[in-house]
């Protein structure tokens, strides 16, 4: 619980123009379903958790 540190490890988005490359890998997807599936895969692979920024963008964060 103490010393919580979070880091964005990946970004999944449907709107490319909303995101600028800044360290985390960006995955461009076409529709909401693909968005969910890609984020789920990344979450399982990276042992991380997904958070919603808006309807078009999810970030995968390692805590």
């Amino acid at each position: 619980m103490e010393n919580q540190h979070a880091e964005i490890v990946a970004v999944v988005t449907m709107k490319r123009e909303n995101v600028v490359a800044g360290g985390a890998t960006i995955f461009i997807v076409k529709d909401p379903q693909e968005l969910q599936i890609t984020a789920l895969t990344l979450e399982k692979v990276l042992d991380a958790t997904s958070h919603e920024i808006d309807a078009d963008t999810l970030i995968v964060v390692a805590h």
Partner: peptide, 17 residues
Amino acid sequence: ATLFVDDILIKNVGLAD
């Protein structure tokens, strides 16, 4: 995407699953 217990905010959950 925001999880609440009553009126207290817990966290943001991104995946519908």
